[in-house]
């Protein structure tokens, strides 16, 4: 499996990380090194093995479905790069 610059660009897009076109070749090459390393997994016999879901045999705890927290608008917005009138502000999304 070899990754070309088109695939590298597609992955960068999916990850929402801007990569300059000039850097795609180096990125693709790094991906190929890492994926080449990962390829070893293909030789393991995993027939009949269930994919691990949780490393400790525990059932996730459940709790009563009720509100336990809230009313903290100022604290939630305190670290926002741009907060206005009680909202997170972002560039225009809908024309």
């Amino acid at each position: 499996m070899s990754i070309d610059t088109t695939t590298a660009a597609r992955v960068a897009k999916l990850a929402r990380i801007r990569v300059e076109p000039d850097d795609l070749e180096a990125l693709a090459s790094e991906f190929n090194t890492i994926l080449g390393f990962i390829e070893q997994l293909a030789e393991v016999d995993v027939e009949g093995v269930e994919p691990m879901v949780s490393v400790t045999p525990q059932r996730l705890k459940r709790r009563e479905d009720k509100v336990t927290d809230g009313g903290q608008q100022a604290r939630i917005l305190s670290n926002a790069p741009d907060a206005r009138e009680g909202f997170f502000a972002v560039p225009k999304v809908v024309e």
């Binding site: 991906f31 990962i38 995993v46 691990m52």
Partner: peptide, 21 residues
């Protein structure tokens, strides 16, 4: 992102979870 993307999820991610087991 790549190992979780459509078409590679089973080959990479699920296989790795099996090897982890």
């Amino acid at each position: 992102t790549y190992v979780l993307s459509a078409g590679f999820y089973d080959a990479y991610y699920n296989r790795a979870r099996k090897v982890r087991a």
